Simulated scan of single mutants.
Amino acid sequence: MIPDFYTHREEWPALIEQIVELLGRVSALEALSERGLELRRMNRIGSVHSSTAIEGNALSLAAVGRIASGGAVFGPQRDIQEVENAFAAYDALETLDPWNVDDFVRAHGLLTRGLISEAGAFRTVDVDVVGPAGDVLHTGSRHEKVPRLVSELLEWVASADDHPIIVSSAVHFLIEHIHPFRDGNGRIGRLWQTLILSRWRPLFAWTPTETLVRRSQEGYYSALQRSRVPEIDAASFISYMIDIILRSLHEYELQSISSVTDGGRNGGRNAAVLAVLLGDPTLTAVELADVLGTSSRTIDRTLQSLKASGLLRREGSTKSGRWIVVERGS
């Protein structure tokens, strides 16, 4: 039986209410947009790039986009395999049951196929989570307890009466705490939170949540650690994820507004460019064209249009600068 492992914070209900309102607005905007599928594709590419990059994958967003399109990519074979696996796992979301242990293990197998010998199997040794300096941050649960703990956790998820945003964040934390696999625990934790949220509202399968986590990666690990020390209380991590979810929906709203208000094919392209640049503001025009599967000339025209309309500006040089996406009204 899973004991209580988090305390509620008084600000959560108001923040969740904001999230629900945003979900309604974004869903309405998506229904009006002619390019909703393109935005979803861009966010999926960003999610895969971010979730694998958090774990050290060196492939660029442009390279991940080429993999999504079935194109050739030059890079470390392990990194390419890891990205292909991530796409397979996210594509399988609709077939996964968030309360089912077999599906949990199967999803891990999809994420780590060809990367580790224990793909799709609970670990059979004890593990430590080590920080950048080599210090032990956390010791995973004893390996012989892992199957029972995961089973109890997913049973708890199935019967939990808290809000899905709180429950999914709490589950994400406890997956990282148990550390049920030799490798891939971060990826499966983020995927499983997305799965639980998408069962509540399907839009969450396409929101740029992982992209926001990557942008505040230090905060992600800090929130995990604060939730373990001096004793387990996942409230800090839940608060962190609520903020990430809120900001990811604000970002999706910006993408959707751009798609609807600019209208037609150009509006969809504008929104897609903004979505990609929110994920990686260092991309060049050539790399943007690669991700979006269009010509550099088309991207140059789109960038000029976005700058002229005040939605985009450039800071720094052509080679080492970055793009700044400007929210309307700011």
Results as ranks from 00 to 15, higher is better:
residue 225 Q to W: 03
residue 325 V to Y: 02
residue 145 K to S: 12
residue 162 D to K: 14
residue 149 L to C: 11
residue 91 D to V: 07
residue 68 A to H: 15
residue 179 H to L: 09
residue 124 T to V: 11
residue 203 L to R: 06
residue 282 T to C: 07
residue 60 S to E: 09
residue 282 T to Y: 13
residue 197 L to E: 01
residue 69 S to D: 04
residue 44 R to S: 05
residue 330 S to M: 01
residue 285 A to C: 03
residue 127 V to R: 08
residue 71 G to Q: 11
residue 261 T to Q: 11
residue 171 V to H: 03
residue 199 R to N: 00
residue 308 A to F: 11
residue 120 G to L: 04
residue 140 G to V: 01
residue 30 E to L: 07
residue 158 A to Y: 02
residue 186 G to C: 08
residue 63 A to W: 01
residue 261 T to N: 08
residue 63 A to E: 12
residue 221 Y to D: 05
residue 314 R to G: 01
residue 177 H to N: 08
residue 301 R to T: 12
residue 153 L to W: 00
residue 25 R to A: 14
residue 229 V to G: 02
residue 22 L to W: 00
residue 63 A to K: 08
residue 1 M to F: 07
residue 114 G to Y: 07
residue 57 N to R: 02
residue 202 P to L: 11
residue 101 V to F: 04
residue 79 D to L: 00
residue 222 S to W: 06
residue 297 R to H: 10
residue 47 S to N: 15
residue 307 K to C: 11
residue 321 G to H: 09
residue 14 A to Q: 14
residue 239 S to A: 14
residue 284 T to D: 11
residue 158 A to C: 06
residue 101 V to T: 15
residue 188 I to S: 00
residue 57 N to S: 04
residue 224 L to P: 01
residue 145 K to I: 06
residue 71 G to F: 05
residue 227 S to Y: 04
residue 175 I to M: 10
residue 191 L to I: 01
residue 225 Q to E: 12
residue 198 S to W: 03
residue 293 G to R: 12
residue 129 V to D: 05
residue 266 N to R: 15
residue 31 A to Q: 15
residue 234 A to L: 07
residue 250 H to K: 05
residue 33 S to M: 06
residue 279 G to P: 02
residue 263 G to V: 08
residue 45 I to C: 14
residue 172 H to P: 04
residue 305 S to E: 11
residue 62 A to V: 03
residue 157 V to N: 04
residue 99 W to T: 14
residue 64 V to D: 00
residue 47 S to H: 06
residue 62 A to H: 02
residue 300 D to Y: 13
residue 211 T to S: 10
residue 64 V to F: 07
residue 161 D to H: 10
residue 118 E to V: 02
residue 109 G to A: 02
residue 167 V to F: 08
residue 271 A to I: 08
residue 206 W to D: 02
residue 45 I to D: 05
residue 54 I to Q: 05
residue 34 E to W: 11
residue 319 K to M: 10
residue 274 L to F: 09
residue 78 R to Q: 14
residue 145 K to M: 09
residue 36 G to V: 05
residue 275 A to N: 07
residue 290 D to V: 10
residue 138 H to M: 12
residue 114 G to D: 05
residue 41 R to L: 15
residue 74 F to A: 14
residue 114 G to T: 09
residue 68 A to L: 12
residue 72 A to N: 14
residue 29 L to Y: 10
residue 106 R to P: 05
